[in-house]
Design a protein around this nucleic acid. Structure first.
Lengths: 231, 231
DNA sequence: GTTAATTGTGTCACTGAGACACAAAGATAA
DNA sequence: TTATCTTTGTGTCTCAGTGACACAATTAAC
């Protein structure tokens, strides 16, 4: 932008965006917000913005703050995806965007979203028919790929679930992320190998035997497995 | 994004650094350069600098360009590690640094490095006794952890080797990265499962049977395995 | 020739995912 | 009540790939 004293180089515009995922009705969804200003006004974009160096201790804070503005809750999981840069991705000029991907429980985040009309959950298929700003469609695909990979070897998908959940719900989330069926037996084996979940009591499900409820034990690290599920 | 004008926020200083690894004498090494200016003048730091938006098509180019200035060759492997940000990491103020990690063959990169005195290969143990600038020690440890993880499930460590190499050399590289012994049999099994290497002819090694030489097949993608090596 | 060192092969045990059968428990309808 | 349907949970077999280790093959040094 304006010339700066510290270097001979123009400092590119730096922003932080997030790809927030959840699973609703056995379908993987992404949170998008409608742009209120140029460029790409009216198009759907990833939630994000500039670092406010007075309140954001680090870029993680920026991502969390921007997500909370839209959903009213902090996501259960947040991790860096990639930093995108270049001249072609924003008509205003050279830009650098640090992108996070995040997971949240649908029930907690959706109550607030449904009251506004500039933010909504979008399924992956809808990305082809909605007008998406910048290179955000490409970024979302990249994030989806990464989430898929992660789901193969970790328990991270539990962060798409509410505090209490059943194995059946976990199975649905996993299948939505992977796009293919998973054996319940495999999930159960992993749950007690990971040793990060505990049973509580019971709960009724649509027709059929009552399912155990699980919740995440307090203060546990996410476990990675040595073997992947099959691709 | 936000409805604010672009210039409402102070844009933090943005830089690109790289953690370039190689293996020399069965030991994992990192390329460091001596700082010629304040802050941390005289300390050792990761090679990097500012994006030159006139010549760097993207941040990848910046990382490659800066590494080539120091080693005279492009690294065989380059991937984003993490973007670090905050007020505490640079005395000059709020900073954002996109860090890559990279791999190169020792023989190709070292010829040039040995002619200069402001760049050198540093072993992981030396990090404790050398003065390291900024939070770069922490970043290097992070990169090493990531490389270790990657070595468990991919063939990426071959990029620490010259064009032609033996299984024994590959074994050494892997053991230097993982910090623990690996069965030769396991490596051989993975080499022909991956199907990205081909034998060429023969070559003598320090006392003992002649070892086959391998090289990477042209235009192959790096293979990931479904199972990790043991931690 | 003998020995030492390294490369390469054969094979057994173990672990965890995939697959599938089947039992258990509740809902619904006759 | 009984029969049927649905979902949950268990038992178990197969299969693939790693770890471990024994052993054969090949070359250098003495």
């Amino acid at each position: 932008m304006s010339g700066n004293k510290d270097s001979d180089f123009k400092n590119p515009l730096f922003t932080v965006d997030s790809v927030l995922f959840t699973v609703i009705d056995k379908e993987l969804k992404v949170l998008l917000v409608k742009r209120a200003s140029e460029p790409y006004i009216g198009c759907w974009a990833l939630p994000g913005g500039f670092i406010d160096i007075d309140i954001d201790h680090s870029a993680d804070m920026t991502a969390l703050r921007k997500l909370k503005e839209k959903t009213n809750v902090a996501p259960q999981y947040l991790e860096q995806l990639h930093t995108y840069s270049g001249l072609a991705r924003d008509p205003r000029g050279y830009s650098v965007t640090l992108v996070y991907y995040a997971l949240t429980s649908a029930v907690e985040a959706s109550t607030h979203i449904e009251t506004v009309d500039d933010a909504k959950w979008v399924s992956i298929e809808e990305l082809d028919i909605l007008p998406i700003a910048f290179d955000h469609k490409h970024i979302i695909e990249h994030a989806q790929q990464r989430l898929k990979q992660k789901a193969l070897y970790s328990m991270v998908p539990i962060f798409c679930l509410p505090e209490l959940f059943t194995i059946g719900q976990f199975k649905s989330v996993l299948e939505a992320i992977l796009g293919k069926p998973v054996q319940r037996k495999t999930i159960i084996r992993r749950i007690d190998a990971a040793d990060i979940l505990e049973k509580v009591d019971e709960k009724i499900k649509s027709g059929g035997r009552l399912a155990h409820l699980y919740k995440v034990k307090p203060n546990v690290d996410i476990v990675n497995f040595e073997r992947n599920l099959s691709y």
